[in-house]
Design a binder for these strands. Sequence first.
DNA 1: TGTACTGTAATAAAAATAATTACAGAATGA
DNA 2: TCATTCTGTAATTATTTTTATTACAGTACA
Lengths: 136, 136
Amino acid sequence: MNNSRFPVSLHILTLLNDAKGTLVSSEYLAGSININPALVRKEIMNLRKHGFVNSKEGKGGGSFLAKNAADINLGEVYKAVKNSDILGRNKNEPNPKCPIGKQINQHLNTLYSDVESTLIMNLSKQTLADFALKFK
Amino acid sequence: MNNSRFPVSLHILTLLNDAKGTLVSSEYLAGSININPALVRKEIMNLRKHGFVNSKEGKGGGSFLAKNAADINLGEVYKAVKNSDILGRNKNEPNPKCPIGKQINQHLNTLYSDVESTLIMNLSKQTLADFALKFK
DNA sequence: TGTACTGTAATAAAAATAATTACAGAATGA
DNA sequence: TCATTCTGTAATTATTTTTATTACAGTACA
């Protein structure tokens, strides 16, 4: 992960949780996170697609949590934003003529899926409500 | 992780293990991985720094494992190559005037260090020898 | 003493990420 | 009704990260 989608999404969700159902504009969210509002809206699109938030268009519009914070766990959030292999991947095909190169991706795959599923299991122990509780 | 340092390093180590102590050139390694030899040498520098491999300069030179494959575990390899936060990080400072923005990095830090230590624990259960054993 | 390596740096290219800009469409309320 | 303030979305540009390329000094061998 060399992008900021997870922390940005978690930040958005935390702010929305804090707003207790009132509508929050992408402008405000962007101001807290310190990124561009259009990026926030894009990330919100994704969170909406995954059922975490809902938005209302038009004047006075904004976003709000679509479910209880206790029903959103961080494993789900991770799954919603992940778009690359957890431990990275070589973009080039390894040499198929090399006995090791030929097989390595297959073994990396099993390693990664194992590692990732325990990671998700671990993340899933914590809900957005748990996370938000840490803020004073 | 959006770079390929972990898979590249593991690939190198697997090849060296397969070579059973004979010297392997960066040219050969690069050919199997399908990346540039200079990158391989750079990655080997790092692996050497961490005590996993040794190299011999000059004609007929190359690299070889510096310790038994059973004494290299994948958690150590991960630690040797990791250079970014496991779940990504927003490069911009969150707004210190926002009650959430002000605190979020601190809470992300504890989350990340927790998540990462279980990830490493998990990876550490597997040695290079275990990994290499999967190749037929 | 030529050859084949590593070590290392500098530079360039490519890819990924983020920022910016723009604007149509929706909801509000004066 | 219509100006205002939002979202949704796309297109473009800028920035950063990653990878490739090139080059060459130094080392070891034969």
